[in-house]
Write a protein that binds this DNA or RNA. Structure first.
Length: 594
RNA sequence: GCCCCGAUAGCUCAGUCGGAUAGAGCGCACCCCUCCUAAGGGUGAGGUCACAGGUUCAACUCCUGUUCGGGGCGCCA
C-alpha cells in the first residue's frame, strides 16, 4: 500500500515536471509515513515541504498542485492537505479490509518479503569461549542474534548463522589446567588453586568424570606440579590480596608444567574432554533456547589450515606489518585505529586478533554480501582494528556490520540479582530459562534496543498478567483459539468464504483500528530486519494484541448473524495468524490454551 | 587523558534515517464482567525531551560545547 501511494505521488511529480513547475530530478524515495494520528488519515507525505524551496513555491501551494496532479486510485478515499503542507491519504475501507484476505491466503508466509532475495548474509553471534556455561549476558546476544537472523530470513535473505569457537587460545589452556588441578584434589592431593583458574562447579564435575572413567592415570604429586613456579597472587576469604605475586606468569607457567609432566598426549586428552564437555553443554543450552546454527566454526581448524599465517602475510605484502621489540605489529593506525596492534608475540605465538583477522577474511572469501557480528558492548573498541585489517587487505570494511549488545541486569523483588552469592559467577542462561521460561526470556531480551542496558525484571517475566507483555501477546492468540472452541461447543456454523464475502460488515471503529494494525505488519518486519532492531517487532506485537483485546472487550465475535460472525471470525483468525508469525520470528511460542 | 554508548512522564522504555498537539506500559486516582478466559477493556492526572549555543521554513531527532551515568583503551580472549 505504501509503495502504491508512493507511485501515485511519483506520477504526479513527473506530471508537474513536464509542466515545468518542478526542476531537477524527481526524488527516487518519496517520503510516505504512517500517520501518527487517525485524524491525519492513514498515510502522510511531507514531499511538498521538501520540494518547496527548490520549486520556489510555498509548501501548501505546491501540495495543492501535487494533489491536483494525483492519478485516481480505488484504494484512496480522500486526500487532504494539512498543517504546513502535509498531504494526508485516507484509504478506502475496502483497501484495508483486503488485508484479512491476504493474511488468510498467505498464512505463515504473511509478512515475508523478497527484499533480500538473492543476497547472502552471515550472522555470527554468542561465540562465547567454551570455558564455562553461558551466562545471562550471552543469553541476550543469543536471543538478539537469533531474532536478527530470523528477520533477515523473513525479508528474503539467505541467512547463515555461525558460532565461532575459541578452542585454541590461552583461556582454553587455563581451563585444561583447572580441570587437572581439580582432578588432583579429587585424588587427594592438597594444593593452592591458582587465582586465575576456573573455579566453577562444572570444572570439578569434569574432573570427577575423568577419575571415574580413568582412575589415577593422570595423578602427579602436587609438590612436583608447583615446584619453582612464579608466585601467584593469593587472596583471603574477603577478597583482600594477602600475597602479591604475578598471577598471569603463575598460570602460564602452570600450563607449561602440565604439558611437560603429562606429555602432549595426556594433556590433550584433558584439554579436549573439557572443551567437548562444555561445548556440548552450550550447544544443548542454545538448542533448548531455540537457537540453532548452520555452523560451529573452530578457531583451531582455522589455525591448522594456515589461514592465520596467510592473513598476516597478506597484511605484510600490503606493507602494513613491521617488526618491533621482537613482535610483529599491524599498522592499524593507518586506518584510524588509536594505535598499532600486535599480531605475533615475542614468543612467536599469534594473537587472538590475528586469528580474528583471518576469520573475517575467510568470511569475506566465502562471498557473503553482508557479514554481521553480534558482540558484547564491552568489545566496541575492537571494531576499528578489525575494520582496519579488512581495509588493509583490500576488502570493503562496510560489508561488515558489528552490532553491539549491552549487558542485561537482572532484578528480583526490585533488587539487583546479577551475581550469584557464592563464587561471584554470573547467573547462567540455563538458570534464567528454568526460572522464567524460554518464551519470557526470548521476549524480554529483545524488548529493548540492543545498545541499551536491559533491566530484566524476573518477577514481571514470571507473572501471568497483562503487566507481562509476553503473556499479554500470547493471551491474544489463545483468546482467538478459545473463541473457536466456543464456536464448536455452541455448534454454530462457520464458513470462511461467507466471511470473506462480508468483510464490508467490519465497520466498527475497533475493527478499523485492528485492520490498520494488521496491515502494518509487513512494514514492521521489514524495518526491524533492515535496521537490525527486533524490539520494533516486540513493540508492534504488543500494540496489535492491545487492538485485539480492546475489540474483543467491546464486541462479541460469536454473534447470531451468520455473515457478521464469519466476517469477525476471519478478522480474528487473521489476527491470530499475524501474532503467531511475529512470535515465531522472536522465537516465542503461540499457545492455544493458557 | 582519549574514544564509544546513553540521558524523553514518579519507574521502565518507544519515538518510523528533520515534520503536525512528544507516545506506551507500570505505578497512582477512578470506572467496566447475569455476556466468547477480567491472564481483559476504558477514563484522568502526570513533560522546560539533561543543559547552553548553532544549522533549518521546521530540531527529541543534525552539529559544537558542558554536566551526569555506563563501557572501552594489554605482546588477554
Amino acid at each position: 500500500m505504501k509503495t502504491h501511494l508512493q507511485a501515485l505521488v511519483t506520477q504526479a511529480l513527473q506530471h508537474l515536471l513536464g509542466e515545468g513547475l518542478l526542476s531537477g530530478a524527481v526524488p527516487t524515495d518519496v517520503p510516505m509515513e504512517r500517520a501518527r494520528d487517525r485524524n491525519h488519515g492513514d498515510f502522510a507525505s511531507a514531499i511538498a515541504l521538501m520540494l518547496a524551496k527548490a520549486a520556489g513555491r510555498k509548501p501548501r501551494e505546491l501540495a495543492e498542485r501535487i494533489v491536483a496532479a494525483l492519478p485516481g486510485s480505488d484504494h484512496v478515499a480522500k486526500v487532504e492537505i494539512a498543517g504546513p503542507g502535509f498531504i494526508n491519504f485516507f484509504l478506502a475501507p475496502t483497501a484495508y479490509r483486503a488485508v484479512v484476505e491476504q493474511i488468510l491466503d498467505r498464512g505463515n508466509a504473511f509478512g515475508r518479503g523478497e527484499l533480500g532475495a538473492g543476497r547472502r548474509v552471515q550472522v555470527e553471534f554468542v561465540s562465547a569461549n567454551p570455558t564455562g556455561p553461558l551466562h545471562v549476558g550471552h543469553g541476550r546476544g543469543a536471543a538478539f542474534g537469533a531474532t536478527v537472523a530470523n528477520l533477515l530470513d523473513a525479508v528474503g535473505y539467505q541467512v547463515h548463522r555461525e558460532y565461532y569457537v575459541n578452542d585454541a587460545g590461552r583461556q582454553m589452556n587455563i581451563l585444561a589446567v583447572s580441570i587437572w588441578l581439580r582432578y588432583l584434589e579429587h585424588c587427594g592431593e592438597r594444593l593452592q588453586f591458582p587465582s586465575n583458574g576456573y573455579r566453577g562447579d562444572y570444572v570439578r564435575a569434569i574432573a570427577a568424570r575423568i577419575y571415574a572413567e580413568h582412575g589415577g592415570a593422570y595423578v602427579m604429586p602436587a609438590a612436583r606440579v608447583f615446584k619453582n613456579l612464579p608466585q601467584d597472587d593469593i587472596q583471603d576469604e574477603a577478597g583482600n590480596l594477602v600475597t602479591v605475586g604475578d598471577k598471569e606468569a603463575h598460570i602460564d607457567a602452570l600450563v607449561e608444567r602440565a604439558k611437560t609432566l603429562l606429555g602432549n598426549h595426556r594433556y590433550r586428552f584433558i584439554f579436549d574432554l573439557g572443551l567437548n564437555t562444555i561445548l556440548d553443554d552450550i550447544r544443548d543450552d542454545l538448542r533448548e533456547f531455540g537457537v540453532v546454527y548452520e555452523k560451529w566454526y573452530s578457531e583451531r581448524t582455522l589455525e591448522a589450515s594456515g589461514a592465520v599465517e596467510k592473513a598476516i602475510d597478506r597484511l605484510r605484502d600490503a606493507g602494513y606489518v613491521y617488526e618491533q621489540d621482537g613482535a610483529s605489529w599491524f599498522r592499524s593506525s593507518a586506518f584510524g585505529d588509536e594505535k598499532d596492534r600486535v599480531v605475533r608475540r615475542e614468543n612467536g605465538q599469534t594473537t587472538y586478533f590475528a586469528s580474528d583477522i583471518a576469520y573475517h577474511l575467510e568470511k569475506f572469501e566465502r562471498g557473503f554480501d553482508l557479514v554481521i557480528d553480534v558482540w558484547g558492548a564491552d568489545h566496541h573498541g575492537y571494531i576499528p582494528r578489525v575494520k582496519a585489517a579488512l581495509q588493509a587487505m583490500g576488502e570493503n570494511p562496510d560489508r561488515l556490520a558489528v552490532l553491539l549488545v549491552q549487558f542485561a541486569i537482572l532484578y528480583r523483588g526490585g533488587e539487583r540479582a546479577q551475581m550469584s552469592t557464592r563464587s561471584g559467577e554470573f547467573v547462567t542462561l540455563r538458570e534464567l530459562r528454568r526460572e522464567v521460561g524460554n518464551d519470557a526470556a526470548r521476549f524480554f531480551y529483545v524488548m529493548r534496543k540492543s545498545e541499551q542496558h536491559l533491566d530484566f525484571d524476573l518477577d514481571l517475566a514470571k507473572s501471568q498478567s497483562k503487566d507481562n507483555p509476553v503473556y499479554y501477546v500470547q493471551y491474544a492468540h489463545a483468546r482467538v483459539c478459545s473463541v473457536l472452541r466456543q464456536l464448536r461447543e455452541k455448534e454454530l456454523s462457520r464458513d470462511e468464504a461467507r466471511g470473506r464475502a462480508h468483510l464490508a460488515l467490519l465497520t466498527e471503529p475497533h475493527e478499523e483500528l485492528l485492520l490498520v494494525a494488521l496491515s502494518r505488519y509487513p512494514e514492521v518486519v521489514e524495518a526491524a530486519a533492515l535496521n537490525h532492531e527486533p524490539h520494533q517487532l516486540a513493540h508492534y506485537l504488543r500494540e496489535l494484541a492491545n487492538a485485539f483485546h480492546a475489540y474483543y472487550n467491546e464486541h462479541r465475535v460469536l454473534v447470531s448473524d451468520d455473515a457478521l460472525r464469519d466476517a469477525r471470525l476471519n478478522l480474528s483468525l487473521a489476527t491470530r495468524q499475524v501474532i503467531k508469525n511475529g512470535l515465531a520470528l522472536l522465537g516465542v511460542s503461540a499457545p492455544e490454551v493458557m
